[in-house]
Amino acid sequence: MTFRFVSRKVLGSLATLLFVVCFNFFLFRVVESDPVSALFRGRNISQQQRQQLQHDFGLDKSKPEQFVRYLNQTAHLNFGFSFETRQPVTSEISARIGRTITLVGISTLLSTTIGIWLGIIAAWRRNTPTDYVVTSTTMAFYAMPDFWLGLLLLAAFAESFRWFPTGGIVNVGSGATGLSHLVDEAKHLFLPGLTLTLAYLGEYTLIMRSSLLDTMGEDYLTLARAKGLRDATVRRRHAVPNALLPIVTLAAVNFGFVLSGAIAVESIYSWPGLGLATYNAIRAPDLPMLQGLFLLFSAAVIVANLAVDLLYAYLDPRVRTA
């Protein structure tokens, strides 16, 4: 891997990020909105208070002025204050980011490993009942909208059977600490985690299956078998590593979406992470919050893509010299 290759990729990523920073500002202002009246709906505020708030939010200035101010702030890593809570956007985000990483990170990890494993099984036993069951089940979950799947699971396991709590991160008012706190959190994590894992699973299974089937047609597998390698060894040493290449791309890009990927599911299960924060911020609209969140989400995807490019060059010798 040459320095030139790496620096070209890094510069490309930075350029994309710069574009996102600018685009971010206008994205949420395309539709004219009035955050002040949206936030204080139903409450009596005087004209003076309203003007004060407009001033505090910086909404009394012209769009170009607001833009320059936004750029200046962003350059200093200052993302402003949330309209709704009046707290700095950075502290709002850092308070929630851990919960989202826990939920979506675990789900992505689980769906990646289980999906790859199922894909390998389906491909190795193609056109058998095992293959049909695996393929059609994961495909069905893949096709379901995640919010709908989430509602179904919620209705079944939280409402009817009452095995799991309906939402939140711990039981309200529970002062539990240590292990019992962890168990409580795990129970709350289970349903949203299951929803996301099932929703992502199909993608990995289907891509791993077809990728492995492609690879299995290759002569070098036949040659390896002709040399006396056992089938299981051929699969482990030749077929799976080569078939994993497309999965690397998919997994890395999906890990980029870990931060933003669960807006619907977090809302359904009231999981107080970044997804729920996004949902609430859109309703206001809480412009500084939205800008901060979207910048973070985009940056995560850009970084993940950069990681794929570099990782790919490491994994596939043919890319290095290309």
Binding site: E218, Y220, L223, H238, N242, L315, D316, P317
Partner: peptide, 14 residues
């Protein structure tokens, strides 16, 4: 031992 028609396919690219 066996030798195949297409040596490109007969070698693992990695």
């Amino acid at each position: 031992q066996m030798v195949f028609q297409d040596p490109t396919g007969a070698l693992n690219p990695r």
